[in-house]
């Protein structure tokens, strides 16, 4: 369960978010939509504790975490796949996974958790000893997603998981996300520019425009309402 209330974020003179509210239930998937610069990443970063929050509050499972450090929030069960394919590039695939698992909830033993990752993405088993920075974009995205899910998060934030990937890989990645959302009971929030893909797996959507919530609704409402034409 994730609740955001009246959130404002500004970087010096640039006001990235103004009075944004959002509520996402456990077991649901929410798409955060919007054009370039709409504030999607700022919203996810504020939830994670790495963007400067001016006003408002953020609650995870009812607990106010607005003043907590990123690592404290992570220990409350938050996981965040950041924009820009962020992983520890010099470390190999398995080291990245191991580190993510070690500082996560550890609800599954390491061996089983690793086996599960390799069963879902067999290519990663072949690349397990390769520096993750040398993998292809799609393989990196698989590592990044697995690093978030291996922590057994209760709230999972994904920032443009499809960016720059071939359609086939995008489908594979989204199938993985949908599977995780279904099986884990976690709250999943996906920031995407490509509304049509994200709304296929999401239950609800929220469109941002210039840092404000412009529209919210169920995925079907948004898809039917021709949201793409009006807001993106």
């Amino acid at each position: 369960m994730l609740e955001v209330e009246g959130l404002s974020v500004s970087y010096g003179a640039v006001q990235a978010l103004t009075d944004v509210s959002l509520s996402a239930a456990a077991g649901s998937t929410t798409a955060v939509l919007g054009a370039n610069g709409a504030g999607k990443s700022s919203l996810l970063r504020a939830i994670s504790g790495i963007a400067p929050i001016g006003a408002g509050c953020i609650r995870l499972d009812g607990q106010d975490v607005t003043r907590l450090s990123p690592q404290a929030r992570a220990r409350h069960g938050l996981a965040h796949a950041m924009e820009g394919r962020r992983l520890f590039r010099q470390m190999n695939v398995e080291e990245n996974l191991r580190l993510a698992w070690s500082f996560g909830a550890r609800s599954t033993p390491w061996a089983a958790a690793l086996e599960d990752v390799y069963a879902r993405f067999p290519i990663l088993a072949q690349k397990s000893r390769i520096a993750s920075g040398l993998l292809s974009g799609g393989q990196q995205q698989m590592v990044i997603l697995s690093c978030t899910t291996i922590r057994s998060p209760r709230v999972l934030l994904l920032d443009e998981p499809s960016l720059g990937l071939a359609p086939l890989i995008v489908r594979q990645i989204y199938a993985f996300i949908a599977g995780f959302a279904r099986d884990s009971g976690a709250t999943v929030v996906i920031a995407e520019q490509m509304a049509s893909i994200a709304l296929q797996v999401a239950d609800r959507g929220c469109a941002l425009r210039r840092g404000r919530v412009a529209l919210t609704g169920t995925a079907t409402e948004l898809l039917r309402g021709g949201l793409a034409a009006t807001y993106l």
């Binding site: 994670s48 504790g49 790495i50 450090s69 990123p70 690592q71 992570a74 220990r75 996981a79 965040h80 950041m82 962020r86 992983l87 520890f88 580190l99 993510a100 500082f103 996560g104 690093c147 922590r151």
Partner: peptide, 9 residues
């Protein structure tokens, strides 16, 4: 930043 987001103190 990534370390912090992953729960590393």
């Amino acid at each position: 930043e990534l370390a912090g987001v992953q729960g590393i103190p």
